[in-house]
Write a protein that binds this DNA or RNA. Structure first.
Lengths: 235, 235
DNA sequence: CTCTGTGAAGTCATTCACAGCG
DNA sequence: CGCTGTGAATGACTTCACAGAG
């Protein structure tokens, strides 16, 4: 156990490990070695041991890690034992989709408010949920009354910085930003940007290159694992 | 100009530069130095010069870069001069929101098809658009007929790998995945995953330890800067 | 003997610093 | 001069490899 600064790459991997451990626990698996865990996501086992060692000595030599116990440790490390209350700013397509997104709840995040500045939208409910779209000018009060600690920015790029400023004034310290701009945050405020434009353009770059990968794969088809091609009904 | 392998970190930054250059061009700015560009996103100017130098010598010593010319170069490098045709698999909240998302068009991506396996949804249109939700079993034919070259996976995690397998069989080489799982792709297929769970849990980690707020982000996201706190009305 | 925890080595990315062109 | 392009230096992250615990 050390008290260095932890890289975000490490904490991101902890999320991945946790997800896997939850599945293993549900499947009744009791212990798992770093090697077995690493095989699940083609990672190096030393990486996993190092990531975990930043936070304590959770393993047992000769055995591995106890699934249930490690699961609890990582949950606590990531702060997922506490509830988080989320406010979404921007009730456009994306904002409303996120308000109904189930993935939040799985990590103990509850969407408790949705805001917009469009008079047409204010007062309406979000999809089939019982969330009512509120006036964005009331953010500060709602943040206080509802104990919101996480904000999601789902507004057009040109107004995202202004929205962030308001959110920061309201005392919010953690922000998930979907607007494709680099936002300037005050110290002590964490902004995590999900930039779909960059992701798309990265795919475009890939498509624009003649595939070097085929050189290593002369026979054309060589999957990492056998691909079942049966018709699939379920989505 | 070299012909090394280019890191994805570099191409991601090219997207950022391009966005900025588009704004500069619209504002009538003719030239810009790497330093001035770097200031826009608190990056190091040498980084920008290096990123660009991988692809050619675009600058003029003593002057900087010509905005319009550099804009065209990067557009071409990223393959954004060619149209891309996108199919979205999964017409849930997220899939439908993405189908209506304007950000695609800005990068020359056109959403031309949306698929689902739910009989209730098939045949209906997506929001107010003229896209009709199609049966997921027809993916292969639609991909061919519509010349789709990019797929978006917006289905639950447990079926994402099966969907990817179908997509790959249909010959698609570039995939944007929103399901929170690590997918196994065949060689020559690029999968870019946007994992909201990881982003959220990373915020949770941050909130769980206010004392480490000053930790610098490893791979260059934003530092501090004074923030205007004026009340803002507009969203 | 197995598997963790960890220093040391290796790999990759960013920043420095300066020669040299316009 | 000012600013690019780039080798050399630094820093960050990953992997190796092994001592030592169980």
């Amino acid at each position: 156990m050390k008290s260095e600064k932890i890289s975000e790459l490490t904490t991101n991997r902890l999320s991945v490990y946790l997800r896997c451990l939850n599945l293993l626990a549900a499947a009744g698996v009791k212990t798992i070695s770093s090697q077995a865990l690493a095989d699940q996501f083609n990672l190096n086992s030393a990486q996993i041991r190092k990531d975990l060692a930043y936070f304590g000595e959770f393993g047992v030599r000769g055995v591995g890690y106890f699934v249930e116990s490690l699961r609890e440790h990582i949950t606590k490390i990531l702060g997922l034992d506490a509830q988080h209350r989320v406010g979404i700013i921007g009730a456009g397509n994306l904002g409303q989709a996120l308000a109904n997104y189930n993935g939040f709840a799985a990590s103990n995040f509850n969407v408790v408010a949705v805001f917009d500045n469009d008079r047409e939208k204010i007062g309406r409910s979000v999809g089939e949920s019982d969330l009512i779209i509120q006036d964005v000018r009331k953010i500060a009060r709602v943040v206080r009354d509802e104990n919101i600690d996480v904000a999601v920015i789902a507004v057009p790029a040109r107004v995202a910085q202004r929205v962030l400023n308001q959110i920061m004034s309201a005392g919010i310290k953690a922000v998930l930003n979907f607007a494709p701009v680099r936002l300037h945050a005050r110290l002590g405020v964490k902004v995590k940007t999900v930039d779909l434009t960059i992701s798309l353009e990265s795919l475009s770059y890939f498509l624009a290159r003649p595939q070097i990968t085929c050189v290593t794969n002369p026979r054309g088809i060589l999957p990492y694992e056998e691909i079942a091609q049966r018709e699939e009904r379920e989505l």
